[in-house]
Design a protein around this nucleic acid. Sequence first.
DNA 1: AAAATAAGCAACCGCTCTTTG
DNA 2: ACAAAGAGCGGTTGCTTATTT
Length: 329
Amino acid sequence: MGRSPCCDGNTELKKGPWTPDEDEKLVSYVQKHGHGSWRALPKLAGLNRCGKSCRLRWTNYLRPDIKRGCFSEEEEQLIIKLHSILGNKWSRIATHLPGRTDNEIKNYWNTQVRKKLMQMGIDPITHKPRTDLNFFANLSQLFYTPHFTPTLTNNPWEKTTQLAKFQILQNILQILNTSALPIVEQTTPLGVQTFNHLEASINSLNGTTAMNNITGVLGEAPNYIGLSQTRSETQNYGISDSWASYESGHSTKVLDTNNQNSLSSSPYNTPKENTLPALVSISPETSIVNPIESYTNSTNGSPADDFFEAWEKLMDDGTSDSFWSDLLN
DNA sequence: AAAATAAGCAACCGCTCTTTG
DNA sequence: ACAAAGAGCGGTTGCTTATTT
C-alpha cells in the first residue's frame, strides 16, 4: 500500500519557510471555509504549496489554539511520564498537553529532555539506567554535582534528579557489592576510592533528614527508595494499571507482586551480609509499549531490571494519582 | 572580530493507517 | 474485497541563531 507524495510531479511548488503573506492567505482561507480537502486547499487559497505543507503549517504553527513558549515543569514531567509509557508516540503524548503539537513535543524531547535524562544516567529510550561505560566514567561527576546534597531542593525537576541519582547510586553500589557481578570494580573507571565515597555518602544519607525528605516527597510511594525495608516489604506495594488508569483518570487495578520463589531463585540475590536492602521485585525485561503486561509477568531478572522497575514505578504513579502532584508541588 | 561548532526548531520526506467508492 | 485518495505520524534534514575557540 502507501501512496506517492502529494507533491510528486509538482516541482514548481514552493518549499521551505513560510512567508507572512502565505500564512495570512492560509489562515484567512481556513477561517472562512475550514480546511476541507488539504490537497485542494492550496489552489483555492491561492497558495503555491502542496496540501501537505499547508496542513503541517496550519497544525503546527497557525492553529489559533497553539500554545507557544517554554514548556513548564509540569508539562516536562508529564512528557517524561507519558514517554516512559508510550515511547515515541508524539501525537498520543500531544493529546495530553493542550496547545502543544506533536512536532513541538518531539523537538523539545530531542533537544532538552533527552539530554537531561542522559545526564541523570537514564536511557531516554528505555527509561532504564544507563549501563554503558561512558556513563560509569562520568559517575564521579554526577556524584559531585551541587544537586547531590543531603537536603532536597524545592525545584520539582531537581527533586526528580536527586531521587534518580540516589537510586542509581544505591543500585550501583548494590551491584558492586553483589558477588554475582564482581567485574564492575575491576573493569570500569569507577575506582575503589569512588566506590568508598559512594558507600559512605549513601550510608550518611540513610536514615537522615534527607531520607525523610525523600520519602516525604514521594508521598504514598516511599518504597521506591526501599532503603530501610526488608525484601518482603519492598514487594508489597501495589502498582497501578498505569496506562489504562491514567487515560481513564482512575487508579484502578492493584497488582500483587509477591513472589518469593522467583526471588530466591534469582542469580543476583543479594548476600545476607550486604548492608544494603534488597532491590525491589524482580522482573524480566519490561516493555515500554505494555508496562501492564510486564508487571503481570514478573518472574525473575537482573539488578538492572530491578532498577528500571523501580524507576518505571516512580515514573508511573505508584499507588495513587497524588504521587506526581505531590512531587510537583 | 572572525571562523567553527553546537543547539534549536520549522519543515520536509516517506511510510502507514483510515476512509471512500 | 480491492485499490486509490486522504490524512496522519515519526524520523530526518537543513536553516538560523547562539556559543565557543
